[in-house]
Design a binder for these strands. Structure first.
Length: 439
RNA sequence: GUGGGCGUAGCUCAGGUGGUUAGAGCGCCAGGUUGUGGCCCUGGAGGUCGCCGGUUCGAGUCCGGUCGCUCACCCCA
């Protein structure tokens, strides 16, 4: 706690001391490794953007939570709350010249002025991965598989999380086919989104009162969305070409994921809606199995967005995965590696007389690529070794008057305590730091 | 944005019904002779008890407000 409260960390923002940064890096490494395996390239953009980039296309939820202000030039600007608009702009400028499909990813820090809660801060890092320029379900499957694989790299399995997949057009066609008027669609989507959190009766009431459905129609809609497979939708609305097309896509998506061995992670659930306005096809969210945490990841197909931002009409599909909820899930499953410091060498001098030699050896070993620390002022050898252990040194070089006189030094293996003598010549040549006495 | 719970050292926590200079363990720093870490011994730093105000002779203990954290709702990443 700082002495001056005015200097305290802002609510919803995080400091990252080394132990915490290590966790973050661990997650980033997995994200980048998954992207490498899938052939995705990393990009980034500015954290501060013109306010209009978001007010135009992002929808009111996001706009209402922007960190927005005027800069010194009088421009209306905002800290980026999501990455997709920036991606759309970047691609609007150069998508034409890029080979398709474009597989790009980024790990931006995003900002939203919201009341903070577990899993929801005012700032987070969000892995964004998108495939642009491919409209087929192959791209949808690839993107879902990428999200799943990143979590597998982190050690999570089918017992830990699942992907729930839905389809905007399918849901839309099913609602229309069930008697919902086109202008009531947004409200109906809202009801579907809340199906899990509101009572069945409340949902029925809302379908009737807010969406203008009759009793039997409302009941039929509920049964449609309560079933976990798509059979009922196919039976009841299979003749509708919109429904048939979307169902074919979803089946095909499922097949690809099954062939990749990801079947155990994937299930269909038409109650997944996603808040963002710009999704046009498949949508998915990734949840922990216990259902205790917020969604770890969400995404889908957004074929119109790039066009809306003034670019080429390019189909796109992608997702965002935040570091906060994922970190909580990993912690809960004990999948965060314990933090430990580590250096290759600690160089200790028994007395001040070996100080000059110590500096020469330290420099030589560092030049040879070793990580090396040493006491910045003289201390008893006992303390130096304690420090070496605390620094996580693999080996300690001990410079004492006796050995130095004979042109050697002891190299101690900190784990076993075994010591070997190594010629000073070797140490000064950047060798011998591995405890190889013959170096 | 709405409502509930919580707020004592870096961390985990003690501090019956208000009573002197607020404690412990761990961690941190230093010492235990210029030759050997994990153990041990000694000493030390570190808290305006989240903050502001009120009640009282006296408040870490009671009351109000505020800020922060947290849970649920809202919403969403």
């Amino acid at each position: 706690m700082p002495k001056n409260p005015a200097l305290a960390r802002l609510p919803g923002f995080r400091d990252f001391p080394p132990e915490d940064l290590a966790v973050r890096s661990h997650i980033f490494r997995a994200w980048r490794e998954a992207c490498r395996r899938y052939g995705f390239q990393e990009y980034d953009g500015p954290p501060l953007e013109p306010l209009d980039l978001y007010t135009e296309k992002s929808g009111e939820e996001i706009v209402g939570q922007l960190y927005a202000f005027r800069d010194r030039g009088g421009r209306h600007v905002a800290l980026r709350p999501e990455m997709t608009p920036s991606l759309a702009r970047i691609l609007a400028e150069r998508a034409q010249a890029l080979p398709k499909p474009i597989r790009w990813f980024s790990i931006p820090q995003l900002f939203r002025y919201e009341r903070q809660q577990r899993g929801r801060l005012r700032e987070h890092f969000q892995w964004n991965a998108d495939i642009v320029g491919e409209a087929g379900v192959g791209a949808d499957a690839e993107v879902v598989a990428l999200a799943v694989d990143a979590l597998r790299i982190l050690g999570l399995g089918p017992q830990d999380f699942r992907v729930r997949v839905s389809h905007r057009q399918l849901v839309s066609a099913l609602l229309l086919g069930s008697g919902v008027a086109p202008d009531k669609l947004p409200v109906a989507f809202g009801v579907v989104d809340k199906l899990e959190r509101e009572s069945r009766q409340r949902s029925l009431d809302r379908l009737r009162q807010e969406c203008g459905l009759g009793v039997s129609e409302a009941e039929a809609v509920l049964q449609l969305f309560e079933s976990s497979d798509l059979e009922r939708a196919a039976e009841v609305h299979g003749e509708d070409p919109e429904v048939a097309g979307a169902l074919a896509d979803l089946r095909s998506l499922r097949q690809v994921l099954d062939e990749m061995g990801m079947g155990p992670f994937v299930e269909f659930d038409l109650r997944i809606v996603r808040g963002l306005a710009y999704y046009t096809g498949m949508v998915f969210e990734l949840f922990d199995r216990k259902g205790e945490l917020r969604a770890v990841c969400g995404g889908g197909r957004y074929d119109r967005l790039l066009e809306l931002v003034g670019g080429e009409p390019l189909p796109a599909v992608g997702f965002g995965m935040g570091d906060v909820v994922l970190g909580e899930l990993l912690a809960e499953r004990n999948l965060i590696p314990s933090y430990r410091r580590a250096v290759d060498l600690f160089v200790a001098a028994v007395s001040e007389a070996q100080r000059e030699l110590l500096h020469r050896i330290v420099a030589a070993q560092r030049a040879a690529g070793k990580s090396v620390v040493y006491p910045l002022r003289h201390q008893p050898l006992r303390r130096q070794l304690a420090t070496a252990a605390a620094e996580g040194a693999e080996r300690a070089v001990l410079l004492g008057p006796g050995e130095v006189e004979r042109g050697v030094a002891k190299v101690r293996d900190m784990a076993t305590g075994r010591e070997v003598e190594v010629p000073l010549q070797a140490l000064l040549a950047g060798k011998g730091g591995d405890g190889d006495g013959n170096a």
